[in-house]
Amino acid sequence: MAQLTRRLRAASAQEELTPSQTSVLGRLSREGPATTAALARSELVRPQSMRLTLAALEERGLIARTPDPSDGRQVVFSLTEAGVRLHGAGRRNRRSWLADAIEGELNPDEQQALAAAVPLLQRLVAW
């Protein structure tokens, strides 16, 4: 799995980002705006580490902060247009690489076996 992850990361337009930064962009894309604390919990890191990740993304203009509508003392982070574009390009590149690899390296029976394994892998990820 680690080797597959590295190959997918290499195929991504986000290769200049750290894995943590890429993960946060993906989470914000999937789940929408979030506070530092919520992101830290979701990513299983300390809030101090998440603050560093968010600062790097904000400095690059990939995320923006706004006041939390339910608690003005907090801020929520969301993707900027640049963040949406970078995340989308990375996702397209990873999918393209994976589709090409499956088609080019696996025979039809292997492709079918892989498709059958996807629901099992999804259950493991959700566990």
Rank of each mutant, 00 (worst) to 15 (best):
G90P: 02
R85C: 08
A2F: 00
L28T: 04
L57G: 11
E16Y: 10
E16G: 15
P19S: 04
A38S: 13
I102S: 07
S42P: 01
T22E: 13
S70I: 03
F77Y: 14
A89Y: 06
F77H: 14
I102K: 05
L62E: 07
P67G: 14
A40D: 01
L98H: 06
L114S: 00
Q14T: 09
Q48L: 06
L86S: 02
R46V: 10
E43D: 09
E15A: 00
R9F: 08
A56Q: 14
D100P: 02
L4K: 03
L44E: 07
A113D: 12
L4I: 12
T53I: 13
I102M: 12
R65I: 00
G26N: 11
E105V: 02
L39E: 05
L120C: 12
R91M: 10
A55F: 07
T5V: 12
P33H: 03
Q122D: 08
L44N: 09
P69H: 01
I102W: 09
G104M: 09
R95A: 14
T22W: 03
A37Q: 11
Q14L: 11
S78N: 00
R92G: 00
G72W: 08
R6L: 10
R73V: 00
R85K: 13
R85G: 06
L106W: 00
E58R: 15
Q48A: 11
L79K: 02
S96R: 15
A126C: 07
A2V: 02
A115P: 04
T80P: 00
N107Y: 03
E31A: 11
L62H: 09
T66I: 01
L86T: 11
A55L: 04
T18R: 10
E59C: 04
S12E: 09
L54S: 08
G61T: 04
S12K: 08
M50K: 09
G26L: 12
P108T: 00
P108D: 02
L124H: 12
Q3C: 02
Q3N: 06
A40E: 01
Q122A: 14
E81T: 15
Q3L: 10
N107P: 08
A126D: 14
A2S: 11
A89G: 04
Q21C: 00
D109M: 03
A115C: 04
T5M: 09
G26Q: 12
R7W: 09
E58C: 03
L62M: 10
R27H: 08
Q112Y: 06
R94T: 08
Q48M: 02
A34T: 04
L124N: 08
T66A: 12
R91G: 05
S49D: 10
T66P: 00
Q14P: 02
R41W: 10
L79I: 06
R94Y: 06
G104S: 13
W127D: 03
P19Q: 09
S29Q: 14
E81W: 04
L52Q: 07
S70Q: 15
A89W: 08
A113Y: 06
R6E: 13
A82D: 14
A126F: 07
Q48T: 13
S20M: 14
Q14C: 08
R73S: 15
R92S: 05
L86R: 14
E15K: 00
A101Q: 13
I63E: 01
L98Q: 07
P19H: 05
P67L: 14
R30Q: 12
Q112K: 07
R7N: 07
G83V: 04
A82P: 03
A56T: 03
E81F: 08
T36D: 08
T36M: 07
L114D: 01
L114K: 01
E59Q: 15
